[in-house]
């Protein structure tokens, strides 16, 4: 992992929203890196700020504070149309709801080619059609689908269209915001497998946002756990799952239902108690094991070091 290049660095990202007179700290001081070619999973419950983080990274919001560095350049300080267009060519998004994210009045061809048009990557109509057909084949659809409208497709097929659209302009990095939550189990596996296959073929990097922990574990190389706008734990998928350090991560994992009746009968849930530590202390991410971070105060490091040792 050491020689791997960082494609994205998120540094102290803060995203606040004004709601009436108060401020909601949707994302509060979140930092992590994503390496080229990996899948970084972001998990957390609703309201934890995982979606907001993904959207802020793509500059769909103006961050309140912090830096987002994509391939060495601060996304918030891109100058001119050209630089901004380049960033949005390299970084794309797949949305959660395949029913809401496709314009019902556009044909599949127009939906997929919209990015190609904007970024002027096609010479003529025939070329446009050819590219769309290539993309459709890539995601397991056929050329007959190009002239149809979104309502003619099932949820899984729509999500494939969404993936084809994201891939149209050859991005390097894709934010996938709960891309499978709206799909049936058998279709979820299809889409996840497709995403994995495309990642290998196209050398893609993913930020995979989801609340389904078992699926995140399956697809991710590294995982970050969020709660109330803060990143609590970051590590490899194996570390976070099999050797979680933060109590919240433990409680989250203990709540995941496993499709195995014997395991379920024995399951012990761990309740998360956030009053264990003084909540007022300043906290930041500390590296407990190489590459395995926990958000804690300076004097709590020992506690987590011990926790890490208990797994050995």
């Amino acid at each position: 992992m050491t020689e791997k290049k960082k494609i994205l660095e998120v540094k102290n990202l803060k995203q606040y929203f004004k709601v009436g007179r108060s401020t909601v700290k949707a994302v509060d001081d979140v930092s992590f890196d994503i390496y080229e070619g990996e899948t970084f999973g972001l998990v957390g419950e609703s309201g934890s700020g995982k979606t907001t983080t993904g959207r802020s990274i793509l500059h769909l919001y103006e961050p309140t504070d912090g830096e987002i560095i994509f391939e060495g350049k601060d996304v918030n300080k891109l100058k001119g149309k050209k630089e901004k267009l380049k960033f949005h060519r390299d970084a794309q998004m797949i949305f959660q709801d395949p029913y809401a994210s496709l314009n019902p009045r556009m044909t599949v061809e127009d939906i997929i080619a919209e990015g190609l048009d904007i970024h002027q990557q096609i010479k003529n109509k025939a070329d446009r059609k050819k590219r769309v057909i290539e993309l459709l084949n890539l995601v397991g659809l056929s050329k007959e689908h190009a002239s149809r409208f979104p309502h003619e497709f099932s949820g899984g097929q729509r999500q494939r269209i969404g993936i084809a659209r994201a891939l149209a302009i050859n991005p390097k990095f894709i934010v996938a915001d709960e891309p499978i939550s709206a799909l049936d189990v058998s279709i979820q596996a299809q889409v996840v497998n497709l995403m994995k296959e495309l990642q290998e073929k196209k050398k893609l990097t993913y930020l995979f946002i989801a609340h389904d922990l078992s699926m995140v574990k399956f697809i991710s190389d590294r995982i970050g756990v969020m709660r109330f706008g803060k990143l609590l734990e970051v590590g490899t998928a194996d570390e976070v799952y099999n050797r979680p350090l933060h109590d919240y991560t433990k409680s989250l994992i203990s709540a995941v239902p496993i499709p195995d009746p014997e395991v379920e009968r024995k399951r012990q849930r761990i309740q998360y108690d956030d009053s264990k530590f003084d909540p007022r202390k300043p906290r930041s991410l500390h590296e407990i094991e190489p590459g395995h971070f926990v958000r804690c105060a300076d004097d709590e490091v020992d506690y987590y070091l011990k926790a890490a040792k208990s797994y050995l």
Binding site: G156, S186, A189, V192, N193, S214, I258
Partner: peptide, 21 residues
């Protein structure tokens, strides 16, 4: 079989999806 196979367990390395609709 297909349903069980397309659910990731904590150990699974590969997901076998059910093709088609």
């Amino acid at each position: 079989w297909g349903l069980i196979n397309s659910m990731p367990t904590l150990e699974s390395e590969e997901l076998e999806s059910i093709p088609g609709t």
